[in-house]
Nucleic acid binder design. Structure first.
Length: 107
DNA sequence: TCAGTGACTGACC
DNA sequence: GGGTCAGCCACTG
């Protein structure tokens, strides 16, 4: 608990940069931070990040736009609702037109 | 201290 | 073209 490594902080920093209405992936964030093979750690960082209101963790999904971490939002529908408010279409826990709303942190 | 686990991903068969 | 496997690393019991 409360390890708050530099890695975690950098993850938070990137997530906060995600524009409204856009989403990105764990792998992209990991790659941006120079740890492309540590995507799981990005997910773990999100596990701590979801408790922070200033971090839009719901905008981070896996590489195919699947809401794999929705259960960590306190409610299965919470993550989906947050995304729908931003204009996304979620069908079967997957973001539609994912490639159109994908935001690349490396760009 | 050690082994198991996880919001993932890419490579291999 | 799909299923499986290994690597990544912090946290937990």
């Amino acid at each position: 608990m409360q390890q708050q490594n530099e890695f975690f902080k950098r993850v938070y920093k990137v997530v906060r940069k995600i524009p409204y209405g856009k989403v990105t992936t764990y792998g992209s964030i990991a790659k941006y931070l120079g740890a492309a093979k540590s995507a799981r750690m990005v997910g773990y960082a999100m596990n701590s990040a979801h408790a922070r209101p200033d971090i839009p963790a719901h905008r981070v999904v896996n590489r195919i736009g699947l809401l794999t971490g929705k259960h960590h939002f306190g409610g299965i529908k919470t993550m989906q609702q947050l995304l729908e408010v931003e204009g996304h279409v979620i069908i079967d826990d997957q973001i539609q037109h994912f490639d159109a709303v994908f935001w690349n942190p490396n760009a």
